[in-house]
């Protein structure tokens, strides 16, 4: 089931009447149950892309196929199956949380009993049942975000599109929110497309990411794929030993190591073709040295992001 394609975007473009190219020839696809993160600075075209996917904004070119539908030709079918949480979500403050969710649920044309059940279930899943009859104006920012997700769940959507879902949340709320997304994917098989510029959270929850810059999708793939693309496929291993012995020749003679660099008296950085930590440990012990630490370095999404944008800037220069 996971290989079923639920969203496909090809050559999507949006040019505003004033000549601003907000989205420039963007193509990517999503499979069922995937969590895809759109990364990029403010104004890079993430929200414009999302609005075009939903059919809330007309594209200047390209195609969107979402669950086998074109959002501009069959908007009602698309909107019935796709949930959307905007970046700055608002509710009717004078209404209770239940009334707010019930209002949008009425558009789904469900039987009253079923609608009531879905609204109560969604509020329960978001741990808002005990505050369901409170006016939304008494809600905190984090609670409003959860309420937004509850509204989305009422639809039982196949795809959920979340625009900057953790904006303005405290770290504890962020981890709770991301855990909810993961559990929804696992339990309901929902596909998520989320945009963010919070790199850590994206890395922790997304299966794939797409990097946006000035309307273009400059790269997309898993974090490992992007790491290989921007930093090569060689691995970096940090080795720390006790004392100040010179182990350069010892490390250089090991198979699979392409570069050795001394970073301090007792710290070495080794660039390897494969993971040779076991061999390194054996060599250090054989040399009668004491091993303090042995660490395989991975490139964080932040490193990838910085590198990608550096490359884009240097290409343009």
């Amino acid at each position: 089931m996971k290989n079923e394609q639920v969203l496909s975007i090809s050559h999507l473009t949006k040019q505003y009447t004033k000549g601003v190219l907000a989205v420039d020839d963007v193509s990517f696809s999503l499979e069922r149950g995937e969590i895809f993160g759109l990364l990029g600075p403010n104004g890079s075209g993430k929200t414009t892309t999302i609005l075009m996917i939903l059919g809330l904004l007309e594209s200047s070119g390209g195609e969107v196929d979402i669950l086998g539908c074109n959002p501009l030709r069959t908007p009602l079918t698309v909107k019935r199956q796709v949930g959307y949480m905007p970046d700055t979500i608002g509710f009717y403050d004078y209404m209770t949380a239940y009334e707010n969710i019930d209002y949008t649920a009425r558009f789904l044309n469900l039987e009253e009993k079923e609608r009531k059940r879905r609204v109560e279930d969604a509020l329960d899943k978001m741990h808002l049942s005990d505050r369901a009859n409170d006016k939304v104006k008494t809600y905190s920012h984090g609670m409003k975000r959860r309420l937004g997700l509850a509204e989305l769940l009422v639809k039982h959507p196949k795809i959920a599109i979340l625009d900057e879902p953790t904006q303005g949340l405290d770290p504890q709320s962020i981890s709770g929110f991301l855990a909810t997304i993961r559990s929804l994917r696992d339990s309901e098989g929902m596909t998520f497309l989320l945009s963010s510029h919070q790199l850590n959270e994206v890395q922790s929850v997304c299966d794939k990411v797409g990097l946006f810059s000035k309307g273009k999708l400059i790269s997309s793939g898993t974090v490992d794929e992007l790491s290989k693309k921007y930093f090569g496929s060689n691995l970096l291993i940090n080795v720390q030993v006790e004392g100040k012995s010179n182990l350069f020749k010892t490390f250089a003679s090991l198979g699979g190591i392409v570069h050795v660099e001394r970073k301090g008296d007792s710290l070495w950085l080794l660039e390897c073709l494969e993971d040779v930590r076991a061999q390194i440990a054996e060599t250090v012990f054989a040399s009668k040295e004491k091993l303090v630490s042995l660490e395989l370095l991975t490139h964080s999404l932040n490193d990838i992001y910085q590198q990608a944008f550096q490359e884009v800037s240097s290409e343009k220069a």
Binding site: L76, G83, Y84, P86, I89, F91, Y92, L108
Partner: peptide
């Protein structure tokens, strides 16, 4: 109130 996007993303024109 930022409610427009929410409402228009529902299955209505």
């Amino acid at each position: 109130n930022r409610t427009l996007g929410r409402v228009l993303s529902q299955p209505i024109y």
